[in-house]
Each structure stands twice: as structure tokens, then as C-alpha cells.
Design a protein around this nucleic acid. Structure first.
Lengths: 161, 161
DNA sequence: CCGTATTCCATTGGGTCCCAAGTAATTTTA
DNA sequence: TAAAATTACTTGGGACCCAATGGAATACGG
């Protein structure tokens, strides 16, 4: 197996592991990783709008919306309209939200963090450098070689009712 | 920002990037990354059962099941029952499936692969080594420090109908 | 001031993933 | 050999993610 394939495989397994830990945490604490992540961000910076929150969590505005909705229903987040600009939201943690955050740190990632922290500092730095570089270049690569021809007759494999 | 945080951030962004490229490829080719991945695996090793396929793709059996169902509906995969053991499936690519695979390689990961392949071999190997190590140790870490108390009164933030 | 653009959200549709249950079929065991 | 346990899949439910839409509210040019 080439090193490239080993890396792809590692990514795939990593993502799966994270999802599994997420599930576990969710059924124990009642909060998913996404919910905790939003909660943490709101803990760091209160009074964010939905769009700002989406940016900070590297996710889509609509995704953030649904997660926030759940948190509001759970009474962990207060969702108000900005008085200055009625389009914007003003999101803040409730008392219960702060409490939840305090007792339920990002458990999911913790397993990963433990592994990373166990690395020798020099290796960790190298790893971080390489990883960051890859991701940044990936973001730059604007769907360059993605414009072939054809399309169509493979007809989107999807359910029919 | 610590190196650990940089790594976490890189992972998060990487995952998002992959999803975005996936979406793009999906709307161009009609096949999602998951579907292509399954297709590719079936191309490498025909006549797999669903469970074997799930193992090879590091995913859940039920997840594989739904993806395969879509591929069968798209007539890219043939799903037959094994004559020896009627519980098992025998999955193979159809003619159209092979054709689709030929003209639609794993486009999604390609962007990532390009970046990885651009690294100096030595750095790539170091990266792969570290990454593999992290993931393997993560898999070993059996939800060790995950058993706190409480639970309940945060009441699973979920929709109520 | 008015009409058009733009911005900010909520909602909906399509997909992926995982778990928990349920259903067949096969193997083991009493 | 009949009952019990195991294996292989499917289905339903919940959570997420993104794209596309639509509705308000605000900004802007004439």
C-alpha cells in the first residue's frame, strides 16, 4: 500500500472513529459533537449571529440553523432578534447552557486530542505543518480538473419514492 | 494556537472540503463519493458480500446496504443471493457499473490525493506514519474516560414532532 | 421616497452515517 | 432432529451536512 493510500485510509478511519465517539457521547450526555461545538463557540464569543457562527464552525448556515434550533429547544441557547437589525439573531448561552458546557467538555474530540498530545512535540509540529499545508492548498485548488464532458445518462442514483 | 488545535482545525476543514467536493462531483456525475467508493471496491474485488464490503470500506453494514440499494436501482450493481448460503449477497458490477467507474474515478478524493502526492516522499511517509499511529491508538482507546455520572436532565436536545 | 438589490434566516429535499430491531437462513447444541 | 444461538441483511429513527428556495428586513441608486 502506498503512503498516499495509507493516508486516505487513515482519514477515513479517523472520521469514522470520531463519529462513533460522537454517538457514544450523544447517548450519554444528550448532546452531539455538533451541538457541543456550537455551545463551545458561543461560550467563547457570546451574542453571535447565525452566519457568524456558521463561519466560525466551518459549516453551512442552514446546518448551524438546525443545530441551534435543537439547542434552543433544549433551553441551552437563547435565540433573540437583534433590535438594531431585525434580520440578525443574537445567540447566547442560557444559564443551563453554560452549565452544560462546563460539565460536558468536547468529550468526543478528547480521545483524539489525547493521542495527538501523546506525540513528541517536534513530531506533532511537523504533523500539524504538513496537515495545515495540505488543507490550505486543497482549499485553493478550485475544482480545477473537474470539468470533463458527458454527464447525464448515469442518472443520479437515488430513491424513487 | 497550539499545534494540537491546528490539527483539529485542519481535520475539520479537511472533512468539510471533502464534503464540498463530493457535492460538486455528485451533481456533475450523479454519483456521490460513497457510491463511487463502493463501486471502486467492487471493481477491485467482485462478488463481495455486504458484510465484507462494509469491512473494506470501514463503514457500517447498514450504511453499505443503503448505498448499495441506490447503486442497484441505478443498475450499476447486481445484487444476487448466494446459492450456497442464502443469507449472503453476491455483489458485482454490471456492465454499466464498470463503465461508470471507468469514466468517473474517485474524483472527490482526487483533489486531496493531488496535494498529498505533491509532498516530498520523506515528508509524506512521516505524515502517513504519524497519522496511522494516531488512528490505531484511537481505535484501541476503549471509551476509557467516558463514564461520568449525571445524564438525564439535559434531556437529549432533539425535536419534538 | 420608491423600487431594486442584497443580506440574514428558516425550511425543505436529497444523501450519508450509525444504532437498534426485526426477519431469514444456517449452524450448533441438547 | 428439533430448539437455540448465530450470522447476514433490511428497515426505521435520529442527527448531520449542503444546496436551493422563500420571506423579511435593510441598503442603495435615482
Amino acid at each position: 500500500m502506498t503512503d498516499t493510500q495509507r493516508i486516505l485510509d487513515a482519514i477515513r478511519r479517523l472520521v469514522r472513529q470520531l463519529r462513533l465517539f460522537d454517538r457514544a457521547a450523544q447517548s450519554r450526555l444528550g448532546l452531539s459533537a455538533a451541538q457541543l461545538f456550537i455551545l463551545a463557540e458561543l461560550g467563547k464569543t457570546p451574542a453571535l449571529s447565525l452566519g457568524e457562527l456558521a463561519d466560525r464552525t466551518h459549516t453551512d448556515q442552514s446546518s448551524a440553523s438546525t443545530v441551534v434550533t435543537r439547542l434552543v429547544e433544549a433551553r441551552l441557547v437563547a435565540r433573540q432578534r437583534s433590535p438594531r437589525d431585525a434580520r440578525r439573531l443574537v445567540l447566547t448561552l442560557t444559564r443551563a447552557g453554560r452549565a452544560a458546557l462546563r460539565k460536558a467538555p468536547p468529550v468526543t474530540q478528547q480521545v483524539l486530542v489525547n493521542r495527538i498530545d501523546a506525540l513528541p512535540p517536534a513530531e506533532r509540529k511537523r504533523f500539524a505543518d504538513t496537515f495545515t499545508q495540505i488543507v490550505e492548498e486543497m482549499g485553493a485548488e478550485k475544482s480545477a480538473p473537474m470539468l470533463f464532458e458527458d454527464e447525464g445518462h448515469t442518472a443520479t442514483a437515488r430513491r424513487r419514492k
